[in-house]
Design a protein around this nucleic acid. Structure first.
Lengths: 335, 335
DNA sequence: ACAGCTTACCTACACGTTTAAGTGACGCGA
DNA sequence: TCGCGTCACTTAAACGTGTAGGTAAGCTGT
């Protein structure tokens, strides 16, 4: 049936014929069925036949029968994919592969077609949203028979938003690093509304630590990532009363914009304004001056997420705590 | 029906019962079968029933029956995923969605388990490798019944490597931009061996234009993306005979490293050494000095790739020419 | 000699769809 | 009245697996 060259797919029936056994036996051998006693000789015959014919079970048929596939679907957020997220995806792929699960990623960015179409066309065992998920979507997925639905930055399990990977500690660490020296902090908030999911909790972290250290509220400005955009914010920080002397940036891109603004005003970090970013993108070390930043351990996050998914699939008791990866201040020059 | 065990999946049989028709009719209505005359009244009844029950056809069953799924599998390359590739993925998703195809991405980075396991677990209609693909892998996929197998940076169709998206023009444009003013060019080659697939053709483009303009061979140095790494290369370029006065960098990250090296030597771009990058990453405009770079049109690439995939799936005659997206020199300060 | 057990398989159904082929009811011309 | 065509469906057969349940053959113990 497969077209012009008549190359039909090789099925387990072909293998059975080749090995002179029944299809059932082929299936038992190839799946290492536990409760079947099949002598090594037969096993080998089957395996050799399968190899000779290049047999690979048809995913569709298998998961139709099994009632579940071993695919985990990752939903990419609507923000620019940079290297931290890229790395997380690679590490998640590895971590899940170790549990026989295949991690596939779909860009949910501008849903040309409703998100529905995607998992409808796939029926994965689990869905992991790399950002947040609305209750409606999550429920729709569960109703469609997807066993595990998780969102990194906002689980909907209990109405309240309970992220699997908390962002507050990042802001907190930034603020703590600066708070030792600086008496008034600023926050450089991202331009892109969608990033609020990340930015709000980070800012909250900064706020908490300011309160804790007895500092005034952080002075928050939105900083567009373009050469001139940050100038306004920098002026405002310096003119504030009391003046801001240290700025926590939402991420390294925003931090770089602040550094650029400082340069264009003839000022210098950290002397006139200290700046700390998040992520350690490649350009951070190359900036003028080299950017101090927070690095997180995506490997730990990946493993944590993978474990939670696997446990839930296995019906095991799942640890509901957020995943806290070790954070580290990478001290360079800017702060 | 929502008993904790009892949550069965809604099947087309349920819809049929609800609408008081047969399963076949449900299928005909929901798939807009062309050769069936079904009155609007019945159509509505079926559609309403489906909506009421929240019916979504099971992907596995559908593609088992149809003999093909509507999934296109993208294989991510083994190099760091930055925002250009991220954008390409998003645009490919959109472009393919317009043809009823679902684009899913798998990170092939460090194949914890053989790549085989992936398409075996999926049986996509097409596979698109975002980098290159070995003949062995491609053949294995075809043998497993995947109809379309393409590689962006190295199709294996005819032994010879014939990329779908050529990289030479990028190097060529860089060289042409610099070649007007500079009599000897350097090339900043990336540190990471895997990037050779991209870097070699780009360098070839530079070479060709140099020859064309009667300039000597470009002076190639490998430039690691770290603060000190590029210093060696910069010294070598300046000391060369005749001295290099303009450098084409593999991409913006490498270019930023060159700029950093210049600063640390107390030199300035473009006065002492002109630098041009590729990609226009966010940091490019914020660099010191702002980086001149090449921007490519990923939208055109995405649409071109999508068209080629769709045409091949439809069995139409496929345009075999590479996709040339419009390139643009974004002139800032560094060159 | 025969029940009872184990070994090594095989038969047969189910999973949810799509779709070719069939069917009964109805209308209509002769 | 019959024959024939059209409409609006339905029946039933796949698609390739996994697996519960069967069964024939061989051995063991009495």
């Amino acid at each position: 049936m497969t077209g012009r060259f008549g190359r039909r797919r090789v099925t387990s029936a072909d293998v059975a014929r080749e090995a002179k056994v029944s299809r059932a036996t082929v299936s038992y051998v190839l799946n290492d069925a536990a409760h079947q006693k099949i002598p090594e000789a037969t096993r080998q015959r089957v395996r050799e036949a399968a190899a000779r014919l290049g047999y690979a079970p048809l995913a569709a048929a298998r998961s139709l029968r099994r009632g579940r596939s071993d695919i985990v679907l990752g939903l990419l957020p609507d923000w620019p994919i940079e290297h931290v997220l890229g790395r997380l995806v690679q590490q998640l792929t590895d971590a899940l592969a170790q549990h026989e699960l295949t991690f596939l990623v779909h860009s949910a960015a501008h849903p040309a077609r409703p998100l529905l179409e995607v998992w409808k066309a796939l029926t994965p065992a689990a869905v992991l949203a790399l950002d947040a998920l609305s209750e409606v979507e999550a429920d729709a997925m569960r109703a469609a028979g997807i066993e595990v639905v998780m969102a990194v930055h906002g689980s909907v399990r209990d109405g309240l938003r309970s992220p699997l990977v908390p962002e507050e500690p990042i802001g907190a660490l930034q603020a703590r690093h600066l708070g030792h020296v600086h008496r008034r902090l600023g926050y450089a908030y991202p331009d892109l509304a969608r990033l609020g999911v990340l930015a709000r909790p980070r800012l909250d972290g900064v706020r908490k630590v300011c309160a804790e250290l007895g500092l005034p509220e952080p002075d928050v400005w939105t900083v567009p990532v373009d050469p001139d955009g940050a100038v306004e914010a920098v002026k405002a920080w310096l003119a504030a009363d009391p003046p801001v002397t240290g700025v926590c940036a939402f991420n390294d891109d925003v931090a770089l914009a602040v550094l650029a603004a400082l340069r264009s005003l003839g000022l210098r970090a950290p002397r006139d304004l200290a700046v700390i970013g998040v992520d350690d993108i490649r350009g951070a070390a190359l900036a003028q001056p080299p950017l101090t930043t927070i690095v997180r351990d995506t490997e730990v996050i990946a493993r944590g997420l993978a474990r939670r998914i696997v446990d839930t699939l296995d019906g095991a008791q799942v640890c509901a705590d957020p995943i806290q990866d070790p954070l580290r201040v990478l001290v360079r020059v800017s702060a």
